[in-house]
């Protein structure tokens, strides 16, 4: 194969730089001494803001709420997504296509439409906005990520394994626990991690399904619209990058043998 032209090399590397440089600037700004503006270059560097963030109860409360919501939403999505994948991976029946479309819908539609629809539904059912309404909102769009991962793995799982297990006398539940689950385990773990990252970061649906609670993205959004504590926001942004970076890297390595981490497409906001 011939060599790439210089122009192509520059364009490709330039494009990748475009994807990464803004994240580097966020890292840099976490150490700035400037409090009132986004002045570049930073007039000085300090570690002080990390200590300030450490002592902030409101930020810890928001982080705690986000972690709790993401954990429970992920667990719900894992159960519902696996059930759906088990039903649809090999079955062929009328209505299969519309049902798979239905699972993708919460992530394919603009977040604002999903948000308002859920808000109205909670209103109609007279459910007060609480921790649980946030969790339900998040679980709605997390199901598809788990579903995509589980379906891909289930389709690669040889049906003869399941038949062999049944022939040896295991019933359906034993087969699931001893044969199916160990085989799809890493796919579920990867799907769960992506769902966790998606929920931890979600802001639009949360604005519509949260009452007075403030998740970390909601806290950040209010700071973005009306910046009051720039240095603190800078540090929080870096922490958020780190928190989402690790599960995604882990999900990548877990699903690497079988191609790509599924569900990458369509993290619609």
């Amino acid at each position: 194969m011939n060599r790439p032209s210089l122009g192509l090399k520059i364009a490709a590397l330039g494009g990748l730089a475009f994807l990464h440089v803004p994240l580097l600037f966020i890292l840099l700004y976490a150490f700035t001494t400037e409090e009132k503006s986004y002045a570049f270059p930073p007039p000085g560097y300090t570690l002080k803001w990390f200590g300030v963030v450490w002592g902030r109860a409101d930020i810890w409360a928001a982080v705690g709420l986000s972690l709790k919501v993401a954990t429970i939403a992920t667990l719900i999505a894992l159960v519902l997504g696996t059930l759906a994948a088990g039903a649809l991976a090999r079955a062929k029946f009328f209505g299969r296509e519309p049902i798979s479309l239905l699972f993708v819908l919460p992530i394919a539609l603009p977040g604002i439409v999903t948000g308002i629809a859920l808000r109205q539904a909670f209103g109609l059912m007279e459910i007060p906005f609480s921790f649980w309404t946030i969790v339900l909102g998040h679980a709605t769009f997390c199901i598809v990520v788990v579903y995509n991962n589980a379906v891909a793995r289930l389709r690669r799982l040889s049906p003869s394994l399941i038949e062999a297990s049944m022939d040896l006398g295991a019933d359906a539940f034993q087969t699931f626990r001893l044969v199916v689950l160990p085989n799809i385990g890493t796919a579920l773990l990867a799907g769960g991690m992506l769902a966790f990252a998606l929920s931890f970061d979600e802001v639009i649906v949360t604005t519509f399904t949260a009452g007075q609670q403030s998740t970390l993205p909601i806290w950040m959004l209010s700071e973005l619209i009306r910046p009051r504590q720039r240095p603190v926001t800078n540090v929080v942004a870096v922490l958020v990058i780190l928190v989402t970076f690790l599960p995604i890297l882990a999900a990548y390595y877990l699903t690497r043998e079988g191609g790509q981490a599924r569900g990458a497409a369509g993290t619609g906001k």
């Binding site: 990748l16 994807l19 990464h20 803004p22 994240l23 600037f25 966020i26 700004y29 986004y38 570049f40 992506l194 990252a197 931890f200 970061d201 802001v203 993205p217 950040m220 959004l221 973005l224 926001t233 942004a237 958020v240 990058i241 989402t244 970076f245 995604i248 890297l249 990548y252 981490a261 990458a264 993290t267 906001k269």
Partner: peptide, 18 residues
Amino acid sequence: VMMPLWSSYLVKVYGWKL
């Protein structure tokens, strides 16, 4: 390509604000 895709949406917007 995947890392920026899965990074926090708000943090990315914040980066551009900076």
